[in-house]
Design a protein around this nucleic acid. Structure first.
Lengths: 294, 294
DNA sequence: CGGGTTTGATAGGCATGTCCTATCGAAAGT
DNA sequence: ACTTTCGATAGGACATGCCTATCAAACCCG
């Protein structure tokens, strides 16, 4: 039963029998049969049938919610029993927005010291993907914005408030003192792509002061942004925490962006599943201890 | 997997392999094997092994929490799909404290009118049993005290505040006006047995005014109490709602019990499982509509 | 419009799992 | 010491799960 629910979740995620089967490590006929049996056992159609996948029926969508709950709890049970056996160990899968990537090491350093047997796997994702991966049980926790867009049913631990600086090559004329958001109208910029919430936040602030952002370069990685800043006259806008690591040398400079002193809360998100796993409880606990925010 | 968890829950409840097997409709070797396989799959011992059942290991107790969650959710999924197929139908299993038994008909009448295909099964139980049955998935909801003893992780809907009257045969000297709790010291009483929370509540109030309750008759059913009142000179203490139905004729009388004007909240309790089943959501909804309390 | 591709369903066969009956051995009760 | 109770074990019938191979329908594209 639980295996079938897992396959059902995979099918809903992949929207394709073959890919879902591949993801589950079974063949397509096996997955097809599993879905059919699930439908028989529950006595309802879950998937619109045709010659190809055509989405879930309303019952299927409702069943999906429970399937996620059940499969998630079953995994938690197994994980918890392993913890009882071997102490805190295993993998902790994190997904992180690009602008918070530098913060991950603070968490892993602190946590890894206390629980050396826990391995981390860190992926860079957009905030939307993080929430969807959390739903789909693809990750155990995420690091993303807490205060800007709706999150859904999750547990959150605020970690720090993001503040923004303008980053440019050393000697850039704007670096002499604080820059107002309103001054950025004519400044050639490179920014994250609009699927990133950070970019949407920056857009908001620019629109608020009547400036339209038309960056010369868009990229989904801040490494790309910074490389462009280093090699050209473009500037970029980054959270302080993301910029710090690039400002160690002399070739780049930064100044605070003011008016307004924008700030957005970034923190840990985890599925709301009671009671909490020991590992997750421990992670949330450490996150609370590291938090700069009450 | 889910079947094995069901058997595990049954074993924890029955504390006996044979009885648990019987309850699950399988033979004892099958249940033994299932538990062993569960232990293998989870990699931990769940049950203290000996020549007989000796309780759960700590891991077993922890696993039991998740097992209940998972099995409960799986049942809910099945039930919800049946609802999608046949509309609101099926059984709703209620357990009710004796003193609230007359209130059940209010709920079933109202609910049954809207959902004629739902059958009710009502059992009289102590408040402690109700909570344990709720945990063990033996009932879907209960009707019990909400404010006197701790409840655990449940959803509650307050329905009414219990108030108490003294009930005696018509013509009994005490029936001339309100009676104080403190006046009951020498009155021959029949009361519920002390495993009933109602009796513990009555004891509290009597102790508070310095009276010791030594009833001539103890019983677990209010029918027994009232029959004794009818046929002897004994009086009893009942909640108004429970007494009303016996006061239709002329042979019994009642007066309010005052100093203090004791009152305890009775309401519906249901497992806290998100999201709620349509049936349960509907039941809670009707209960809220019927509630006399904000 | 027709051949090739994609996609999910179906058929047949093998391996594994599940559940039963019968029986055993240890411990508890008498 | 004898009996009873309780859970574990053994062996066999049956069901389930998963695979490979293949099919039919729909889609794509020149």
């Amino acid at each position: 039963m639980i295996d079938k629910l897992e396959m059902f979740i995979a099918l809903a995620r992949e929207e394709h029998f073959g890919r879902a089967a591949l993801a589950q490590g079974v063949t397509q006929p096996t997955l097809s049969a599993a879905i059919k049996q699930l439908e028989d056992q529950l006595g309802v159609m879950l998937v619109w049938r045709g010659s190809r996948y055509q989405g879930l029926t309303p019952e299927g969508q409702r069943a999906l919610i429970w399937a996620r709950q059940i499969v998630g709890d079953a995994r938690t049970l197994r994980q918890e029993m392993r913890v009882a056996r071997e102490g805190l160990s295993g993998d902790l899968r994190l997904a992180v927005i690009p602008t918070a990537l530098t913060v991950v090491s603070e968490i892993t350093a602190d946590f890894g010291e206390r629980h050396p047997n826990v391995r981390f796997s860190v992926q860079s994702k957009t905030s939307t993907q993080i929430l969807s991966d959390l739903d789909n049980l693809e990750i155990d926790a995420g690091l993303t914005y807490l205060d800007n867009e709706p999150l859904g049913r999750v547990t959150t631990v605020p970690l720090y408030a993001e503040r923004y600086v303008l980053v440019a090559k050393a000697g850039h004329p704007l670096l002499s003192g604080p820059v107002k958001w309103g001054d950025l109208g004519d400044v050639p910029l490179c920014l994250l792509t609009p699927d990133m919430q950070n970019r949407r936040i920056i857009n908001q602030h620019l629109v608020e002061v009547g400036v339209e952002a038309i960056p010369r370069i868009e990229a989904s990685s801040i490494i790309v942004l910074v490389s462009h800043v280093v090699r050209s006259n473009l500037a970029t806008i980054l959270p302080v925490r993301a910029a710090e690591i690039f400002l160690k040398g002399d070739d780049l400079g930064s100044v605070p962006l003011i008016k307004p002193d924008a700030s957005h809360v970034v923190g840990l998100v985890a599925p709301h599943r009671e009671p909490f796993t020991p590992v997750l409880a421990s992670l949330l606990d450490r996150a609370r201890a590291l938090s700069e925010i009450a």
